[in-house]
Amino acid sequence: MKFWSALKRHKWRYLAIIAGFALFVYPSALLIRAGYFLQGSTAMPDLHKTCFRMPFDWIASGNFATFDGRFVLIGFLGAVLGTSFLFGPLFCGWLCPVGSSTELLSKPMPNKFKINLSRKLNPSALRYGFLGAFVLVSVLAAFAPSLGLASICCRYCASSQLQNLVNGIFSPGALSYWHSGGIMVIGGWLLIGGVFWQGGRGWCLYGCPLGAVSNGLHTIGSKLGFTYKVKHDGSNCTQCGKCEQVCPSWAIYRNEDVVKINRSTCTACLECLKVCDSNCYSYKRGKV
């Protein structure tokens, strides 16, 4: 019942999530397909083409200008990071097929079976640590190819795992993937960080490098007056705690009865705006 009421309450967001799948995930991958078509490329458009690690490889090999999909990737990263700075990480909250799939999967699961480490394990510190590791491994993979790290990075990438799962459904040739141990990694991302995770965004909170950069930019952007951000006005707040429960990215917390928003995890999903009966939340410009 809660699941259906949540879907009804935020129908535009869930429609955007479906659009995210259609825009980025093979076999449709409409946005990437359009970009490749404009570029005159015949490469298969899928979620892998938005890989954040690729520019390291291009720079290391010294032929940046000849790579297929460079405009698509640069355009995608520019749009995601630009909107994160100006409007908050809207891609993460509204379009990302990786985070939204686990979030949706976690909704029907009762809360008593879910892991909630919001007050125990600081997501900000750990995710920026993993981001540092991601950059380090990307540099090593690009500049020291003898280590053989390039293909291994995909094993840790939830985007890659999602695309492989979908490939397994749509093309019989990729079915061998289902029998491989890759399912264990998917289990970690989809089950521990998804179905059995409060909010269903375990990967986003701790592992996603793009999310970490987006939130870093949002943290900086939110300090400026002309950028959009979620704001909380405590004057009408009844301390009901609904917003804290509904936030999928554990960004809302109370410190001595004062509601605070952690910009380094907020995905601008605007669930808090919908759930608050006292209209304490708003999404607008201005300083916090």
Partner: peptide
């Protein structure tokens, strides 16, 4: 912890892969 764990895991796995076994055998467990 994030930097050390995140860096060492793929490096260890690459050593495993160069040693003959593929990462598909355990899926990066």
């Amino acid at each position: 912890y994030g930097i050390i764990a995140g860096t060492s895991a793929p490096i260890l796995l690459s050593r495993c892969a160069t040693g003959g076994s593929s990462c598909t055998t355990c899926g990066g467990a």
